[in-house]
Design a binder for these strands. Structure first.
Length: 650
RNA sequence: GCCUACGUAGCUCAGUGGUAGAGCACUUCCUUGGUAAGGAAGAGGUCGCCGGUUCAACCCCGGCCGUAGGCUCCA
């Protein structure tokens, strides 16, 4: 038999018989590797591990720990689930079942809904099939044969899908045991590779995502190549649930919703009010250091302003309906930019006035569709950490960099270790339609932004076709302490709207110019940002943000007087302090304070009263022993002033 | 907006065609206790809202409001 040469990713080469499969290559290297090989790539193309190789090739073997291998495993688990469902309910029909990040799903045409008991049944069936270790085989066939096949087994959705595939393309079909599915693949070689899985939830989903179509039943699940990874992922889901801002926000009395007020309209409770005050104080401090001036604008405005800005054309559906005031249409404001433009325009500007930076925690109202509302993350009233920078073309790069630096400053303060900026670019094909028709300006601005990001060493990716209609956009993704992803803020570069508002400045030569405008909101909205912070910190806010910073716990009534003395000392230092003077034992008071996630417990008994000290117990850290009051006050003041991060559990 | 599920005390939840219950929290009393729950008593509800069926509805039916998951990831 003739030989072929296989080149592995480490550039080593091996000689094999023609027709060798990636799985056999894995076996020749080691049984352990063969066990872990889920898929392969042959000359860069992802494929099954059981495909025979007929000529010299570059081959990579993908194990479950590689992203490619994991994706194949997820996809194969979706098939395994479909097989289990078909075996339990032969009348159900399969539709589509892809892999998504860390999870998979499959949509079924199924009579009724899947109950949690059904999911358990399906999971047990999956386990059975996995143990049978059925070989998974791929078969290619013509379009007509495929249509015949799926018509024959009563899979109408598959027939519909095939009918839409280009007739020139080959159709591939995968089989395991008595289950056959239309699929591009690749898949794991045996069902036994799919071991560590868990079904998560079921829900309705429309066929092809269109509400005019039939409602299908979707089941989500997850799978990993090792038990450990599965367990870690399930722990993560559980931890994320514990940190859910809707749960903690209620428990910690940060905000609430009320039916009579309306959906998506949060009420900030006193604890939330404190957090907001602290965030605004931080923003004022940082912005004034960066040369911003604070402004204030009304919540209500005539419709003409939004006609001019273009918002009424583009976003009318997302705005609250107009109200008639003395025969004129007024709207509650969906964004602050038009008002800021008017503030710029309130007096003539010269190049000496630029960059002109104005900021405001502006309140906006947006009519989000009811189904889109989600805790604090998607609301209908919000206060945005908004600002607009008007500058000349020459100043632009420096201004843009300064905004980026501000982001990094904030990330540092809040302990955000992982972020990504997504530079959304325009699509030249959509010029004049989705995007303002200024091809040269687009390219020019995008280049400047890209260079600024590169020069500033900012972690970013480029996304074509997602820009705002008036300029490139930078979305900021951040990851919380447990690795949950959030979209926080978007920045936009605007080279179009200032013209619409006839904004001008006089340059050095006395001629009139139009400024560029940068929209920025690093701290997002109070709603979204505090929602994020709750989850990021798991409710354990850093001292400077904690609604209650210190709770004084008198050991018995004998020290109530001393406790009051300590309290007034702390009050005098501006520390937010409370006393728990209930007739409870100290253990109960500590428990109560721990559950309220108060960062500092100051325990005062007779010993402390005599020595003019308090015993400190810090959350997460534990007992810190006795400390003189003066020293404690200094420590706390400095920790608050520096906005130190909280200690994290590890 | 659409689909499905859910809505009972401040919170978490049980419950029945004959107008309601637990635990925690709250109030009072007893206990004066040293690093995650001491004891007792009390108070607290138009069972989301509106309508219908019924002698009788928190329960059954319909509508509305709200919340959650999903509807975007596409063989």
């Amino acid at each position: 038999m003739s030989k072929i040469t296989i080149t592995l990713p480490d550039k080593s080469t091996r000689s094999y018989d023609v027709g060798i499969t990636p799985l056999e290559i894995a076996e020749s290297i080691g049984p352990r590797l063969a066990q872990d090989t889920f898929a392969a790539s042959i000359n860069g193309e992802l494929s099954d591990a059981t495909v025979p190789i007929t000529s010299d090739a570059k081959v990579s073997l993908y194990t479950g720990s590689s992203p490619e291998g994991h994706e194949v495993l997820l996809h194969s688990a979706a098939h395994l689930m479909a097989q289990a469902v078909k075996s339990l309910w032969p009348n159900s029909q399969v539709t589509i079942g892809p892999a998504i990040e860390n999870r998979f799903y499959y949509d079924f045409d199924f009579d009724g809904t899947f109950s949690p008991e059904d999911l358990e049944k399906i999971e047990n069936k999956m386990r059975e099939i996995s143990e049978e270790n059925l070989p998974v085989s791929r078969q290619e066939m013509s379009r007509n044969d495929a249509i015949k096949l799926f018509k024959g087994i009563g899979e109408d959705y598959k027939v519909e899908i095939i009918e839409q595939i280009d007739s020139a393309d080959n159709i591939s079909v995968y089989s395991q045991g008595d289950f056959t599915d239309l699929c591009r693949g690749p898949h794991v070689p045996f069902t036994g590779k799919i071991k560590h899985f868990k079904l998560l939830t079921s829900s309705g989903a429309y066929w092809r995502g269109d509400e005019k179509n039939k409602m299908l039943q979707r089941i989500y699940g997850t799978v990993f190549s090792t038990k450990k990874e599965l367990k870690e992922y399930l722990n993560y889901l559980e931890e994320a649930k514990k940190r859910d801002h809707r749960k903690l926000g209620k428990e910690l009395e940060i905000y609430t919703f009320d039916d009579e007020v309306g959906p998506g309209l949060p009420l900030w409770l006193p604890n939330g009010g404190i957090i907001i005050d602290e965030l605004e104080a931080l923003a004022k401090e940082v912005e004034s250091r960066h040369g911003y001036q604070r402004v204030r604008t009304p919540h209500l405005t005539k419709g003409d302003l939004y006609k001019r800005s273009g918002h009424l054309d583009l976003y009318k559906d997302a705005m609250y309906p107009a109200m008639d005031v003395d025969g004129t249409e007024y709207f509650v404001k969906p964004m602050n930019c038009p008002h800021h433009h008017k503030i710029y325009d309130a007096s003539p500007k010269s190049y000496r006035d630029l960059p002109y930076r104005i900021s405001e925690y502006g309140t906006c109202y947006r009519y989000e569709k009811s189904g889109q509302l989600f805790g604090l993350m998607r609301v209908r009233s919000m206060q945005m950490n908004d600002a607009h920078i008007y500058c000349s073309n020459d100043e632009f790069e420096a201004e843009f960099m300064d905004v980026c630096q501000m982001y990094l400053e904030y990330f540092d303060i809040f302990g955000i270790d992982k972020y990504e900026m997504r530079l959304s670019l325009h699509d030249p094909a959509e010029l004049g339609k989705k995007y303002i028709d200024e091809p040269k300006l687009w390219i020019q601005t995008e280049d400047v932004v890209r260079n600024a990001l590169k020069n500033g060493n900012i972690n970013f990716v480029e996304i074509p076709g997602e820009a705002a209609f008036y300029g490139p956009k930078i979305d900021v993704q951040v990851w919380s302490a447990i690795g949950k992803e959030f979209t926080l803020a978007t920045n936009q570069v605007d080279f179009a709207i200032p013209k619409r508002f006839n904004l001008t400045y006089t340059d050095e030569n006395g001629s009139e110019q139009t400024p560029l405008c940068i929209h920025r909101a690093p701290l997002s909205t109070h709603e979204r940002f505090i929602g994020f912070l709750i989850e990021h910190y798991g409710g354990d806010f850093p001292l400077w943000l904690s609604p209650t910073q210190v709770i004084i716990l008198p050991v018995s009534e004998k020290t109530h007087e001393y406790a009051a003395e300590v309290e007034s000392n702390m009050n005098a230092c501006g520390i937010r302090v409370k006393i728990d003077d209930r007739p409870e034992k100290i253990g109960a008071k500590i428990r109560h304070s721990e559950l309220s996630k108060i960062p500092v417990m100051a325990i005062v008994g007779e010993k402390e009263a005599e020595e003019n000290t308090v015993s400190i117990r810090r959350r997460i850290i534990g007992d810190q022993g006795a400390i003189p009051i003066d020293q404690l006050l200094e420590n706390l003041k400095s920790e608050i002033k520096q906005r130190s991060l909280p200690h994290r559990e590890s």
